[in-house]
Design a protein around this nucleic acid. Structure first.
Lengths: 161, 161
DNA sequence: ATACATTAATCTATTTAATGGACTTAGTAT
DNA sequence: ATACTAAGTCCATTAAATAGATTAATGTAT
């Protein structure tokens, strides 16, 4: 099965990965969250091949994750800015960072720390429940089929331990 | 620049993506969190080429994200189980799901909802600050260079708006 | 004027990775 | 004996990634 076909599945992970589930794309998003916004910035910061960068930016723009904005005339040149939809990927990037910090930081500690300007402390992000505000542990949650997808999980449930 | 070289960078995003930053790998992790654990499960559930699946599982095992456990003798056959390190990827998967739910669920609503057994409600996950417990907005945070990486961000800071 | 510099790409040839299908191995069931 | 299962591996084909050169539209320095 080809990759693209997976994106047609009724699965929010698959659909999300069809847009951003690529190493370079996620690195571009990292740079965007750190303030980079121009083609040359991404290219130099990441060493990404120009063709690949061009193709990825086009996809992100088509999907409304970034928007091209002119920053000068004659010749008109564009920078890339995260849209609201793009900014909504912040939790994905933060959770990726934290896993890397925990398992791959080594002796030197995390290369980047995250500061919460509101409270004035360096923080780590904690997943909490929208309903009870308690911290979420994967052992206390379970996936359930959505209203319009009866039996979706049951299909996978005939899985032996 | 090749992919692998990026993983050498002092960046927790890059290092994390070197392990799990691949579409198939993240889909395999999705299946693991839904309870799948055998080679044939992943292959049939995802339609992934067997060579690719084999290679990805080997990498996940090598990195300690999953562990191979025998589930029968004669012939000995193995299933895959998330390690503690693997379970720690739960926040990544949940945030990916939620972004997909928000932007790609369509009319029918999310295909899967997440239930918090502890409080008895379907929930969405909210990122909160470990220090003040407030919800985290990307507009109220800033990245700072880690103690042993002075100037790391400043290198990227000569970026014009 | 001419040459050089910038920026954002694109074009092309080469290298690398993904894909699909058949095959293997060790055992069980008919 | 034959068929079947599970977890892979092997191999030929196809697609994607990569590196390097080139382009286009300007502006700046000599």
């Amino acid at each position: 099965m080809k990759w693209q076909d997976l994106a047609q599945q009724p699965c929010s992970v698959a659909r999300t990965l069809a847009v951003i589930g690529d190493r370079w794309t996620l690195m571009i998003l990292r740079d965007l969250f750190l303030g980079a916004n121009r083609f040359e910035h991404f290219q130099q910061s990441l060493g990404i091949p120009r063709t690949t960068l061009s193709e990825r930016l086009r996809l992100l723009e088509r999907e409304g994750v970034v928007r091209k904005l002119p920053y000068q005339e004659k010749p008109t040149r564009y920078k890339y800015r995260l849209t609201a939809k793009g900014v909504d990927l912040y939790p994905v990037l933060i959770t990726l960072v934290q896993w890397g910090d925990k398992y791959y930081a080594g002796e030197a500690g995390p290369p980047v720390v995250h500061h919460h300007k509101r409270c004035g402390h360096d923080f780590s992000a904690v997943l909490t429940c929208s309903e009870c505000n308690g911290a979420i542990s994967p052992f206390e949650t379970e996936p359930r089929s959505g209203a319009d997808y009866p039996g979706l999980l049951e299909q996978r449930a005939n899985i032996k331990a």
